[in-house]
Nucleic acid binder design. Sequence first.
DNA 1: GCTAGGCAGGAACCCCTCCTCCCCT
Length: 201
Amino acid sequence: MAPHHFSACMNIVIFDLETTGLSPSENEIIQIAGIRMIGGRIVEEESFATFVKPESRIPRFITDYTGISNAHVRNAPQPANALLSFSRFVGDATLIAHNGNRFDMPFIRENCIRHRLPVRTVGFVDSMSFSRKLWGGRCGHGLDAIMNRLQLSDHGARRHDARGDVKILALAVRQMWEQLSPNFQHCPVALGDGVIPFNPY
DNA sequence: GCTAGGCAGGAACCCCTCCTCCCCT
């Protein structure tokens, strides 16, 4: 089997979560979306998206922010099932999320604990690292700032819906990666670890 | 009309610790 850091750059899943708030220990996941990128090519037809049914109601300000209402999640899978589906989609890919070191990965980890899901380790890269490496520490590294610098439009995607954000993030990652390592032969920023549910199938 | 938790980078300083800001919903 190829070393982890090699396959890491070939098979990537860029993903995003929408939640009921900012605290991984207090708040709940309401949407997961992912899109695959192989060798720098975004594979649109290999996309993943699901709403997730939270135990509590979605606060009004979250519905205003994300466009996701209680009606959207009424018949959605429970968190454990949604996370297991996501894990199957991920396979042995390396994950990328924006500010995922502090937000998305802790949310997944907390949910695995909360719902007693066994976990497995996957490679993880925070896409903010690409921006810091390219543009340094003085400018902003939020997705909006990166979109502006790359002159990326939202391509009609709805911002703050995971399906829209993940498409935009994939384009941004592809461009930033290309500027740092044009052949996509290696990952130009630090590769870390994360956990997602272990899926027995 | 509204909220909250924490990593990483930089400074100051010699190797860690502290601080502040950022960014995600």
